[in-house]
Design a protein around this nucleic acid. Structure first.
Lengths: 248, 248
DNA sequence: CGCTTCATTGATCAATCTCAACTCGCGTGG
DNA sequence: CCACGCGAGTTGAGATTGATCAATGAAGCG
């Protein structure tokens, strides 16, 4: 069932020409000693709905997403899933994997996915010598933690509308930062992004029911706040939409 | 209003005799070069309800709690608070402070609090040379992140009863691990811990209303699951109580 | 002694869930 | 080519959880 790891999927990786990927860019250009050559890395792929990594045990690997979307989730006793975060191209699967072999969650491909696996042991060795890489990894950790804390606040304090709006805006901002969507500042009002998430993904990430997600999204559409079709989403009125997300 | 930093509060720190504190133990004993002496650290205190650290900007500091309980929280636009975690003696305030100067949340003392502030720049320098310290800091990060992820799952999937039970059990386990409460394995059934949290703390940490927390706790007491008085909490039937927490 | 914080309790309200039925599109096997 | 099943989304009715509002009492503290 699992597809052969293919070089091909990785050629369409948006960061292919930059080096390894978003993350690995620093390895290639930055430091004088060019530590990139010391860090073994291999390419892998996964199809939609395939589990790329299972919770626990993951040997000497530090994987980074190069193309596609994935969800990091845990399964509860009754089979219910909780999504901890969505992984986009350029995201490390987990900063914790630099320090520990055990992954604390599972990863499922949402779209076709391609990722590279670096060797943790190599990476750690290089990390000590390369201040630039050290900074890069620090910022991976910091952003990861900040997003987790943010989600805690959302789940603890926000209504369904707010949670969903914040999720969407958060994803949009991450895409904009990576140049995968044009900032609303130019077109002012509208902001269009790819959006391969199903409603059940949104539900699992916001702690809501798929049924309720459907109703809230329909509400957004009826109020002409967003447009949603063909796996892409347009925020029609960015200001007003942010207003919903930042109510409190 | 802020109390003078007092050496005295720190003398009753349970880890006082071990070195600096739970965390600093490794600095003193482990490495041959005894890097402890290189790391500047100062002692501080805070009274109940005092804000020990405010969100953003915190210079060259890496603080560690030596005595007491504190809450790490963020304030929303409307003044509402969300508690991200409770800090116990031996906890670093935030692993992120090793990498970045900005604290992403505020910290309020719940009980009388004493903490030590290490210099991040010193710590980082030592960190590179000392594998033991490196491991220690790694585990701080990993546990911090695991707890955050865990809370996300709780808030996303659990009922009020489950959330509160899980919070209590989580705190009990942390105290047991530090030898601040005797594991239920001996006494089998009951487990008594210090519990300085007010119901509004529990509410902010579980995303519930203080009113509802009161009702749930009363329910626990009426069913003889817990006993709660004088700032201490006893889990009367650990098995049954865990059953409530692990329903899903 | 009076103020503030904390906890409790009941009545009512609102947000979200649950259940169920239905549609649509798509891929598969006959 | 068609029938079928499956996953995804929609919609409505009713149930439930937890929020809100309000009143009260107890405890701690200056």
């Amino acid at each position: 069932m699992s597809p052969p790891p293919s070089e091909e999927t990785c050629r369409i990786c948006p960061a292919y020409e930059l080096g390894f990927c978003e993350f690995g860019r620093g390895l290639k250009s930055g430091s004088p000693s060019s530590p990139a050559s010391e860090v073994y890395q291999s390419v892998h792929g996964a199809r939609p709905r395939e589990i790329a990594f299972r919770k626990l045990h993951l040997a000497d690997a530090f994987p980074i997403v190069c193309f596609g979307w994935a969800s990091a989730f845990t399964t509860l006793g009754d089979g219910q899933r909780a999504v901890l975060s969505f992984l986009l191209a350029g995201d490390a699967v987990s900063a914790a994997l630099l320090f520990d072999t055990a992954l604390t969650f599972s990863v499922e491909a949402i779209t076709h996915l391609s990722y590279r696996i670096f060797k943790r042991s190599d990476l750690r060795r290089v990390l000590i010598r390369s201040p630039e890489l050290y900074e890069r990894i620090s910022s991976v950790y910091i952003e990861e933690k900040a997003r987790a804390d943010n989600l805690i606040v959302d789940l603890g304090c926000c209504t369904a509308e707010e949670r969903i709006a914040r999720l969407i805006i958060g994803l949009a901002q991450r895409l904009v930062k990576r140049g995968r969507a044009n900032d609303g500042s130019a077109a002012k009002a509208a902001l269009k992004i790819e959006f391969p998430l199903r409603q059940h993904h949104v539900a699992q990430a916001t702690g809501l029911t798929p049924v309720h997600v459907s109703k809230v999204l329909r509400g957004f559409r009826r109020r002409n706040l967003i447009e949603l079709s063909e796996r892409s989403l347009t925020i029609l009125d960015l200001e007003k939409f942010k207003g919903i997300a930042h109510n409190r």
